[in-house]
């Protein structure tokens, strides 16, 4: 299918022309092997570079405090978990972690519940109204965050919902709604309309049909949209930094306020980074298949 595999597929050619092919192809095949090796090396180097910042943070968090940020850097050391234990016991890190999770989960669930019917309608009701909504969604997606978040700060303080997880989740649902409906609309567009009609003939209402026919078919699409929305909520710094303060602080905000700390606590910031990131890396490993498949089946056709 691509440069790397075609070298192999060449050997599976019909036998009748084999001799000729081998004679003609050998030098080219060797060239391809070189290309494959170079490609593999490039990929390996990319992986190392992409992983390096996180790797260094893991190392900093598992060294002794003295070695953590020593210059010249220490590469060989005996790992210790002190920074993690101290982080866990002297700060409310678990609360920040729970806040982060709660915000991400609420955001995901509500965004999907609200976004699914809308995306379905947009995929089935072409015309200027739908186009208008989609354009609006695109514009909202591109807005400078501060244009909505600073007023939200002011409004939430006036309404007394400042520094609550649900206010933050509400803001994130709205901010990510454009992406959610855009993604889901493209998934719905893949499902043939005849299916709707067949179900409607069987006496289903639109909602019943949506629930009983469409949603089961949308499994991978919903999963993909869900993963992306979850990641958005889990990662969000700017909105969380402005809409939260003490009781609903999330981990990214916590880490950002630790950058100017002195040693023992600075090292705990590294530990916090590792603890925050390990679960999402787990998600990345589990979910990669769905992300690619999901993006493939619709999202990118927009």
């Amino acid at each position: 299918m691509s440069t790397l595999t075609t070298a192999d597929s060449g050997t599976a050619r019909p036998l009748d022309a084999a001799a000729e092919v081998v004679a003609r192809r050998l030098p080219r095949g060797r060239r391809r092997t070189t290309a494959a090796v170079l490609g593999g090396l490039f990929l390996a180097a990319t992986c190392v570079i992409m992983f390096a910042p996180f790797l260094w943070t893991i190392m900093a968090s598992t060294k002794t405090t003295r070695e953590a940020f020593a210059n010249p850097p220490v590469f060989l050391y005996e790992p210790t978990a002190t920074a993690f234990v101290d982080l866990w016991q002297t700060t409310d890190f678990y609360l920040y972690l729970i806040n982060t999770l709660v915000v991400a989960v609420i955001t995901t669930v509500v965004a999907l519940l609200v976004g699914l019917p809308c995306a379905y309608a947009l995929s089935r009701f072409p015309g200027y109204v739908s186009a208008g909504l989609l354009i609006l969604a695109l514009v909202f997606r591109a807005l400078p965050r501060f244009a909505v978040v600073l007023p939200m700060y002011d409004i939430s303080r006036a309404l007394g919902v400042y520094d609550t997880t649900y206010a933050l989740a509400a803001a994130l649902i709205a901010i990510n709604q454009p992406f959610t409906i855009w993604l889901l609309r493209n998934f719905f567009a893949e499902i043939p309309r005849e299916l709707d009609e067949a179900a409607m003939v069987d006496g289903c209402t639109r909602l019943q049909m949506l629930r009983k026919v469409m949603i089961p078919l949308m499994g991978p699409g919903i999963l993909t949209a869900g993963i992306f929305t979850f990641l958005f909520g889990f990662q969000e710094y700017l909105t969380a930094a402005i809409l939260t303060d003490t009781t609903s602080k999330t981990v990214p905000v916590f880490i950002a306020t630790q950058l100017g700390q002195t040693l023992p606590m600075l090292q705990q910031a590294a530990a916090a980074t590792v603890l925050l990131t390990i679960p999402v890396i787990g998600i990345a490993f589990v979910a990669q298949k769905y992300l690619v498949a999901g993006l493939n089946s619709g999202a990118v056709k927009g």
Partner: peptide, 17 residues
């Protein structure tokens, strides 16, 4: 309740609060 925070964070939060 007291959350750990660096000096720059304190300056900014003081203005805000």
């Amino acid at each position: 309740e007291h959350d750990p925070i660096d000096f720059a964070g304190q300056v900014q939060k003081t203005t805000a609060t």
